[in-house]
């Protein structure tokens, strides 16, 4: 495991933060950490990189307990409220951070990364004169300077234009292809849906769902059918295979956990001699899932 936490809690005088989070992230994964504003995402990431001291619980990065210097050795971090020393030029800033990592001859790496985030040609400008988006781009360079095994990106596209967002998505995919692990804080669900393998949803500081993105979404394939000439046994049987089953005057509406159940159910209907007029399926998007889960959590 690249990252592992056990009942990790960080609260501020008994309030806010996050509570009893137990997570593990495998190597090579793009892990999406989702949640509404104030849910505790940034607090979690800041705790991971040693900026905040946990209230209780344990956590390891690459096997090293968090808060130690060793745990931060192969880590990259783009903070949510990124700010860099504005009296330096881009080049100076990157040399400074490379030196903090004790990287020898960082010149080539810096050039490579500047190219990657499309900042080439701006490196001799003062950071003061960078736009917000350019600062976030250089923040991404800083997060990747040391060839980290795991990168924590806290809303890495918050200041980026649409093209920039696509570029960041490409960078994340590239990192994944190099076997790196990416921990992505975001509320841009469509973005997360496109790049993440696994997600956790946090609300009011607690994890309310976690798992492989596909599996979480699969649970929520919604099916609607219109049938006639059915028997009550048939309807009974379908209801047993599905969730949230509703039936009214030939109209069926239900959810299945596995898409493969859809053709099975269709076959059952035909073989039972009933007529199938209409079959609509709709895989719920991450957005539906998110709204659904948060909604449920708020009720309880």
């Amino acid at each position: 495991m690249v990252l592992e936490t056990q009942n990790l809690t960080k609260q501020f005088n008994g309030k806010g933060g996050f509570k009893e989070v137990t997570l593990s992230v495998e190597k090579g994964q793009v892990f999406g950490f989702l949640g509404p504003n104030g849910a505790g995402k940034s607090t979690f990431v800041k705790t991971m990189v040693g900026l905040l001291h946990p209230t209780s619980g344990f956590a390891w990065i690459l096997g090293k307990p968090i808060g130690t210097v060793e745990s931060r050795e192969k880590v990259g971090f783009l903070p949510e409220n990124f700010r860099y020393h504005d009296w330096m030029t881009g080049k100076e800033l990157l040399s400074f951070h490379a030196e903090l990592y004790k990287i020898k001859n960082p010149g080539k790496k810096i050039d490579e990364l500047l190219e990657l985030v499309k900042l080439k040609g701006h490196e001799s400008k003062l950071i003061k004169n960078y736009s917000k988006g350019m600062q976030q781009r250089i923040g991404i360079v800083i997060a990747l300077l040391n060839d980290p095994e795991i990168v924590f990106l806290d809303e890495p596209t918050s200041a980026l234009d649409p093209v920039g967002r696509i570029e960041v998505r490409e960078i994340i995919k590239q990192l994944k292809s190099q076997g790196k692990t990416v921990f992505l804080n975001s509320h841009l669900l469509s973005e997360v849906e496109m790049v993440c393998d696994e997600v956790a949803i946090i609300n009011h500081g607690r994890i309310i769902a976690e798992g492989k993105l596909e599996e979480l979404l699969k649970e929520h394939t919604h099916v609607e059918m219109i049938v006639s000439d059915y028997t009550s046994e048939l309807i009974e049987e379908i209801s047993r295979l599905s969730k949230e089953f509703q039936f009214k005057e030939g109209k069926l509406s239900f959810k299945v956990e596995d898409k493969e159940k859809i053709p099975i159910i269709a076959k059952m209907i035909i073989e039972a001699g009933a007529k199938l007029y209409q079959l609509n399926t709709q895989t719920s998007s991450l957005e539906d899932l998110f709204i659904n889960l948060i909604g449920k959590d708020e009720v309880s």
Binding site: V69, P79, F82, R83, Y101
Partner: peptide, 14 residues
């Protein structure tokens, strides 16, 4: 106060 500390202390330094 400026937030520049985040990117410094998340590095492997004490």
């Amino acid at each position: 106060e400026s937030g520049t500390i985040y990117s410094i202390l998340s590095k492997p330094i004490k």
